[in-house]
Design a protein around this nucleic acid. Structure first.
Length: 437
RNA sequence: CGGGGCGUAGCGCAGCCUGGUAGCGCAUCUGCUUUGGGAGCAGAGGGUCGCUGGUUCAAAUCCGGCCGCCCCGACCA
């Protein structure tokens, strides 16, 4: 993409309303614009990141045997009356009346909707297990939206719903999501720790929050050092195998958020205890027959009995993750995108547009990168080098490839790794080889 | 929902107390000079001062009502 033709409204100064670093950087780097409290428009650069994160989530869900659907944002109140939640949910749920005076709502979640879809279609345990998910906008009328996309009212969420004939099956489904989540966040360059969470009225231990560690995280978290050392992506996962050992490896260690941490009774030795800040980016839980019973979602089991289906639900805050990644990865100069979610792989800087040699070399590199399917943002605009570098640092692409007459006279370009700041002068061919490797 | 703060050019702000031609920096546009880490000079454009009543000869400024946004607390992907 040529910067001269791109819509990238960056800001030198920080908008007054932005308080935390990810919000500030998202506004400054031209990723989002606020529409109203807790509601944002996504500009081209930000939308690219959102899509990349969405893609990783989708790939890992599919790999875990889930099937993507798309349910509506607007739901009928009728469904929620069936589950009993219409009156329970409170003012966080945005209620709407259509022209025929029917009660509707903008979905804050989709348990009812998916259960309704499931119950009319599946009647036998032979069709289980199943896991359906979608990636859709939600609306929760938070009392106090804040922190940009980290706590918006409108947000993009991946929510998955599992269906099993019995508890043992539900537990296997839960484990699949547990492992899938570890991989999903790791692929985004995030260190995510599953932490014991309240499982609500159902009880039991099948509920975990996935918290990523970031210095600027919202809440303090405490966990055993061992949890930081597991290699999540090192080996492929067979989702049909018994995943209990993997889950056990993660859950045997202490890991809690500050509201559950008691220094007096903490079982971890001080030298093994990691104290950090965290951001919740995912939440999984098993809730049994909470919806299937009132909504009459039943299947026939192997003994010929009609039983309510066992369910679980699994959320990932996709739009929140954009902010969370930035919280976890930035520096003084701006964002430092992990490779996997970066909006472009390379920022190509032409130091002197209009100079035949510089233009020629840049155009050539740009074309060759495109040919190798390496997405580059090509700064072909007139302007001072300092401004160009500052802008590139702000938007934080993993690589910066700088080309100018002075270097070309020596036969070199400069390649900079954003994350480390390391710069290297090398030939254009060598730089290309590095970037397309 | 309780407490606090703020709405003046795209962004950051001053002006308000003490009413009298709406300002500054950055950004934008034009010209010239510069050009390898947020340039210099000269000029230009851009405003329902959040909205609405009121007081007054006169309101960004004083008074009332409303709206919006932000922060702190209790709650959440």
């Amino acid at each position: 993409m040529r910067l001269s033709a791109y819509f990238l409204p960056t800001l030198k100064e920080t908008p007054a309303e932005a308080q935390i670093v990810s919000h500030r950087l998202m506004l400054r780097a031209g990723l989002i614009r606020q529409s109203s409290a807790g509601i944002y428009s996504w500009l081209p650069l930000g939308f690219r990141v959102l899509k990349r994160i969405e893609r990783i989530v989708r790939e890992e869900m599919d790999a875990a045997g889930c099937h993507e659907v798309l349910m509506p944002t607007i739901q009928p109140a009728e469904l929620w009356r069936e589950s009993g939640r219409y009156d329970d949910y409170g003012p966080e749920m945005l209620r709407i009346t259509d022209r025929h005076q029917r009660d509707m709502l903008y979905g804050p979640t989709n348990e009812e909707q998916i259960t309704e879809i499931f119950r009319t279609a599946v009647k036998s345990y032979r069709e289980l297990p199943r896991n359906l998910y979608h990636i859709q906008w939600k609306f929760r009328d938070e009392v106090r939206p804040r922190f940009g996309v980290m706590r918006g009212r409108e947000f993009l969420m991946k929510d998955a719903y599992s269906f099993d004939v019995d508890y043992a099956g539900a537990r296997r489904s839960y484990n699949r999501m547990f492992v899938s989540y570890l991989r999903t966040f790791a692929r985004m360059g995030l260190k995510a720790i599953p932490m014991q969470a309240d499982s609500g009225p159902i009880g039991g231990d099948l509920s975990h929050e996935f918290v990523i560690l970031a210095d600027t995280g919202e809440s303090a978290v405490y966990c055993h050092r061992a949890l930081l050392e597991h290699d999540v992506l090192g080996t492929d996962v067979d989702y049909d195998a018994d995943l209990e050992p993997i889950v056990a490896m993660w859950t045997k260690h202490y890991a809690v958020t500050d509201d559950k941490h008691d220094p007096e009774s903490c079982p971890v030795a001080p030298e093994d205890l990691v104290t950090a800040r965290g951001i919740e980016v995912g939440h999984i839980f098993y809730f049994g027959t909470k919806y299937s019973k009132p909504m009459n979602a039943t299947v026939t089991n192997a003994d010929g009995e009609t039983v309510p289906v066992e369910q679980g639900s699994y959320g990932i805050g996709v739009s929140r993750l954009v902010g969370a990644v930035i919280e976890a990865s930035h520096d003084e100069a701006g964002i430092v995108w992990p490779d996997a979610v970066a909006p472009f792989a390379v920022g190509l800087i032409n130091l002197k547009p209009g100079d035949a040699a510089s233009d020629g070399a840049c155009d050539d590199l740009y074309a060759k990168l495109a040919g190798a399917r390496v997405e580059a943002l090509y700064d072909d605009t007139a302007g001072r080098a300092g401004v160009k570098f500052a802008t590139m640092d702000l938007i934080g692409l993993p690589w910066q490839l700088t080309v100018g007459p002075r270097g070309l006279a020596k036969g070199v370009v400069e390649l900079k790794r954003r994350a480390t700041g390391e710069r290297e002068e090398l030939s254009g061919e060598a730089a290309l080889a590095r970037l397309t490797a």
